[in-house]
Amino acid sequence: MASSKTITVEVDDVSYTDDVEPRLLLVQYLRERLGKTGTLIGCDTTNCGACTVHLDGVSVKSCTMFAVQADGHNVTTIEGLARDGKLAPLQQAFHQCHALQCGFCTPGMIMQSASLLTENPHPTEQEIRDGLEGNLCRCTGYQNIVAAVQAAADGTVSSDSTVSADSDESETAGVA
């Protein structure tokens, strides 16, 4: 058995020091050691993006990093996105635009969208679609996810609990 390594990682503003096997993936460290089960595993080939977190502020797939590589770094997961009990604009936007159904891709989608908006605060629809090319969703057909990212970028996210009831004829879902 390979010898374990001691790592110190700041995750969602809390510093953790742990002994880990070198082969332990960052996502497994987050889920199994820290109980951060909000970050999910959807594939084993770095395609689906469900495990996306931020490493020092940029999106990475936490299934394609060993925990030892995160030693000394800062990780933000979906669980650290809301601040002071207030949803981040993207979280609110995903809710408002009905950008999730089963919810399994959602943590990764939101984390990648956040990284996308950091790099490009005012993306076009095509830039949003391209920016999410590494995240698979099987429920939504992506349309409402794209709308949610657009809404978050445009600052049109409201805190209302409903959207208008007459959206049934609209060409786009979500933001009425």
Binding site: G49, L55, S59, V60, T64, S115, L116, G134
Partner: peptide, 9 residues
């Protein structure tokens, strides 16, 4: 190359 997350790493 691949996707944004992969390009970051």
């Amino acid at each position: 190359v691949a996707d944004p997350q992969v390009r970051h790493r």
